[in-house]
Design a protein around this nucleic acid. Sequence first.
DNA 1: ACCTGAACACCGTTCAAGT
DNA 2: ACCTGAACACCGTTCAAGT
Lengths: 232, 232
Amino acid sequence: MPPHKLTRESVVSAAVDLADREGIAALTMRRLARHVGVEAMSLYHHLPNKEALLDAMVDRVYAAIELPTPDGDWRSGLRTRSESVRAVLLQHPWALPLMESRQAPGPANLAHHEATIACLRAAGFGPAQVAHAYAVIDAFVYGFVLQETSLPFDSGEEAATMVTDGPFGELLATYPNMTWFTTNVILAPGYSFEREFRPGLELVLDGIAERRADGIPGGAARPPAGAATTDT
Amino acid sequence: MPPHKLTRESVVSAAVDLADREGIAALTMRRLARHVGVEAMSLYHHLPNKEALLDAMVDRVYAAIELPTPDGDWRSGLRTRSESVRAVLLQHPWALPLMESRQAPGPANLAHHEATIACLRAAGFGPAQVAHAYAVIDAFVYGFVLQETSLPFDSGEEAATMVTDGPFGELLATYPNMTWFTTNVILAPGYSFEREFRPGLELVLDGIAERRADGIPGGAARPPAGAATTDT
DNA sequence: ACCTGAACACCGTTCAAGT
DNA sequence: ACCTGAACACCGTTCAAGT
């Protein structure tokens, strides 16, 4: 277990492993040190403090995300990137809350944003269109993964035992609409929350494409004339 | 400061106040106790442990969200609810990560889901359509707020000082597309990230409405025939 | 019933000291 | 240069004891 060379990179790798296997709550400087075969204080020779460790872990995660190629096909570029974001964040469920709370973006984070903006620019998006598209896509992807990583069940089978066993089932029965939803969706054969990802992503990509077709090039993106809006 | 009656409710209220004012990291059992004029161990007479306190705080937040009325107008129902979710989560920036990590839903949480499903059912959504609409809407709303609560700047002015002052500006200048984006969007007069919320929400509502018009009633929601899909 | 003080097993981090 | 041990100021929580 104790590698002869302890480096910043090997400490970060060990931290990612530990967080993946035992959760972010188990990632303490003392436990991490034991895990790499060293005393707790030795870690501070490679990293100034725990915040810096978390920053480095987050940038490792960004580095694993597939970048869109700036070849002009913004739809497939954004789709590939978004699916890769989701896949990577599911592999490291501790990462999303951390990514959003970091203030010092690392090199992989910056490269990721650079490539995504480049992909949209290459397809002719103006500044306001890039801002709109990026905001909506990231909201959807991050929000979806946030729900996915925190659902108490992955499949219909796990949900079934949760609903039938225990006191939760009795409580649920007092809510008619939740009961209807549980029976007809969650307990229906083949249910999984994840199957909503692709249709949802296409919905968002369709909406971006439509607004782009209507909009003034480079101008502010806005809903089409038919949409009900209540702007003040 | 020390109220004569210490109750579970007053403890939870004080905890929400403390988290609002000083952040969730400052919410320790010892500090909370001092804040309500009592010793730390007294809190355990009203709540079994800190997890239960966090559960109760999250349900307080759910209780503050405006419920959609089941009057058949699903669009305005979802819009009202979604804007209320955002407003409440911005008032309590600590709440979103906590909401998604709780496993024991409180009464306000259940009432919230019950009313939202009821709103969609009343408008004639089938089970799969409810599942699709709810997943996409929540992904967008939670994801948007997640970004909003963690942005290092709220307005263009704050962003400007961040970009011009300090070492971050020099680093940024080495990324041409991020520089372009910063100059033309973030530093443009009147910029704020929040203005993307309403258009994004309408994009999602439009997409839900379109797929509903095409779909088999009660069947699985899917992208329209024209959309590029890569289903396996 | 409600509150307390001492204690236990943890944290991140500083600092002086070892090799 | 790299690692260590003791120590400090914290955590959440148990437990026996006070009123």
